[in-house]
């Protein structure tokens, strides 16, 4: 029995090690390439792994104020922070109303939002562009515009959070109300402290989304490089012919973005797991 166990554990480890290699390989490549000099060893994704000489050229380029990289980085950070905070507030508000209160039109609202979610988002892109333009929130004003777009309709994503609220016994609310608390107090004093994991989960997911937002951001900010976010700016480095030899700079930039987010993510991983698991069960 124990021999069989040993063998099966051995196979298990072997598989896990292979999986780990596959999963880590691209990141290792990314790190290695970011240390290749774009001056001495030009080219895109060269077909060898280890750079011939170790160099910090790409990083020097990014840290040079002329490259605007940190402006884009800052833009994204601002967008991500605001969207994260405001979206969390919106989601909590909607979730509380839908989970704890019964009002006319509640069923209709939930069903209506479900149907709306089935329309592909790009459909509304051009329309949103002109809508935002009317308020001066495109191009030069693209950052507040992107924040607005990021959180304004986020109430629709209440599922996970509402599912979590549903699991908190209603008897707690009732007890508090008997003690004289109104709903606002129940919500802010009792329910929110109980919902720490889901709040962190919502905020974390909302925080990570803007780092990837290429489509909308490039549309809203077009032709005004001061309002680009990192995704828009760096996507050009690999996808358009105007930027020759930016590949290693892309890798370096990608790394500078990935490292802080990964660290943040790892620290909050516990809550993230709780959120996705809860979300999956509640649908």
């Amino acid at each position: 029995m124990s021999r069989r166990n040993k063998i099966s554990n051995g196979i298990g480890y072997a598989i896990l090690i292979v999986i780990s290699i596959i999963w880590l390989f691209p990141f290792v490549c990314l790190v290695l390439q970011s240390f290749r000099s774009y001056i001495l060893e030009p080219g895109g994704q060269v077909n060898y792994l280890l750079p011939k000489t170790f160099s910090l050229d790409s990083y020097k380029f990014l840290f040079d104020p002329e490259s605007k990289f940190f402006r884009w980085y800052g833009n994204t950070l601002i967008i991500a922070t605001f969207v994260s905070v405001l979206q969390t507030i919106f989601v909590l508000m909607v979730s509380y109303a839908l989970s704890r209160m019964r009002f006319k039109g509640r069923e209709f609202l939930m069903r209506f939002w479900l149907v709306l979610g089935m329309f592909p988002g790009f459909l509304s892109m051009i329309c949103l562009y002109f809508l935002l333009k009317q308020f001066g929130l495109t191009q030069a004003g693209a950052i507040p515009g992107l924040i607005l777009i990021g959180f304004a309709s986020s109430g629709m994503g209440y599922y996970v959070c509402k599912g979590y609220f549903d699991t908190i016994p209603k008897s707690l609310d009732e007890a508090a109300r008997i003690d004289g608390a109104n709903r606002f107090q129940v919500f802010t004093i009792m329910l929110i402290p109980l919902s720490k994991p889901i709040i962190i989960y919502t905020a974390l997911v909302a925080f990570m989304a803007p780092w990837c937002d290429y489509i909308f951001a490039s549309y809203i900010a077009f032709g005004y490089s001061d309002s680009y976010n990192v995704a828009v700016a760096m996507y050009r480095w690999v996808m358009t012919n105007d930027y020759q030899g930016y590949f290693t700079r892309f890798c370096a930039g990608g790394l500078l973005i990935a490292v802080p987010i990964t660290i943040l993510f790892m620290c909050l991983q516990k809550y993230y797991v709780e959120g996705v698991t809860g979300g999956a069960v509640k649908g």
């Binding site: 999986i19 780990s20 999963w23 880590l24 691209p26 990141f27 490549c29 990314l30 895109g44 994704q45 060269v46 077909n47 060898y48 792994l49 990570m208 780092w211 990837c212 290429y214 995704a231 760096m234 996507y235 690999v238 996808m239 892309f250 890798c251 990608g254 973005i257 990935a258 987010i261 990964t262 943040l264 993510f265 790892m266 991983q269 993230y272």
Partner: peptide, 30 residues
């Protein structure tokens, strides 16, 4: 944790990189 890295790294970085790995003159073919 190793697996979860893919969630943390923004997709436009990881996927653009991986896409290029499979180019005719990319890393894998090379």
């Amino acid at each position: 944790t190793i697996l979860v890295m893919t969630i943390a790294v923004p997709q436009f970085v990881s996927l653009l990189y991986i896409g290029k790995m499979f180019a005719p003159d990319g890393l894998v073919n090379g």
